[in-house]
Simulated assay, not measured.
Amino acid sequence: MYTQEEAKQIRKKFWTLFGDRCKLVPELRGRKKSWMLYDTKISGVDLKFEAGRNDASVILEVNHRSENRRLEVFEGIQKYKAIIENGFEGGLTWDFCYVRDSGAEVCRIYTSMKGVDIHRQNQWPDIYNFFIENMIRLENNFLAIRDVLKEEIRT
């Protein structure tokens, strides 16, 4: 078992090394930022990485504070499910009421890698490869619908 400080240092090292690993990815070279993440150009829509003690996930999250707006955006994205899921062999998980650890309710579309643990450094290369492969795909799929989605949800 790790102390809180040791666990914090492990997470910090994990994300630092992930950033270094991303610099080696040909698809990410020449970009100002490696990943879109919070800069989706749609308010309340973010792309995220999560790594924990049991799994790792690549996520498209709709986190608008207004529940009505959040569901409206989520439903707008659902119309383009075939495009968002393009290239994801098993599809994605669509959760319109995901509760974060903080208690906040959000909508999530994600893929997860089960059975990995951020505390096991020998698993980091597999997690990094999972993150990179799936986030590139999710970003590209999202970009394919972003402009149309922005127009549709503008009211």
Rank of each mutant, 00 (worst) to 15 (best):
Q4N: 10
A7Q: 04
A7N: 02
Q9T: 10
R11H: 15
R11G: 09
K13Q: 13
W15F: 09
W15A: 05
L17I: 02
F18C: 02
F18M: 11
F18G: 04
G19T: 15
G19S: 13
K23V: 04
L24Q: 13
P26T: 02
G30V: 01
K32E: 12
K32D: 13
K33L: 10
K33N: 14
W35S: 00
W35I: 07
M36Q: 08
M36Y: 01
L37V: 06
K41A: 13
K41Y: 06
K41G: 06
I42F: 03
G44I: 07
G44K: 06
K48P: 00
A51V: 11
D55I: 04
A56E: 07
S57R: 14
L60M: 10
V62M: 05
N63D: 09
N63W: 01
R65W: 15
E67Y: 09
E67V: 10
R69V: 15
R70P: 01
L71I: 12
L71Q: 14
E72T: 11
V73R: 03
E75K: 14
I77C: 07
K79E: 15
K79G: 11
K81W: 06
K81N: 02
A82M: 10
A82E: 15
I84N: 07
N86T: 10
N86M: 07
G87M: 04
G87C: 05
G90N: 12
G90H: 10
G90D: 13
G91P: 06
L92G: 02
L92V: 04
T93P: 07
D95G: 09
C97S: 15
C97A: 14
V99E: 13
V99I: 15
D101P: 09
G103P: 09
A104W: 13
E105Q: 12
E105G: 11
V106E: 04
C107P: 04
C107F: 06
I109Q: 06
I109R: 05
Y110W: 07
T111D: 03
M113H: 00
G115K: 05
G115P: 02
V116N: 02
D117I: 00
I118A: 01
H119S: 10
R120F: 05
N122D: 12
Q123F: 00
Q123V: 01
W124F: 04
W124K: 02
P125Y: 03
I127Q: 05
F130T: 00
F131R: 04
I132Y: 04
I132D: 00
E133I: 01
N134I: 00
M135T: 09
M135W: 06
I136D: 09
I136W: 03
R137K: 14
L138P: 00
L138I: 08
L138M: 14
F142L: 12
F142Y: 11
L143N: 11
A144P: 08
A144V: 08
L149D: 09
I153C: 07
I153E: 04
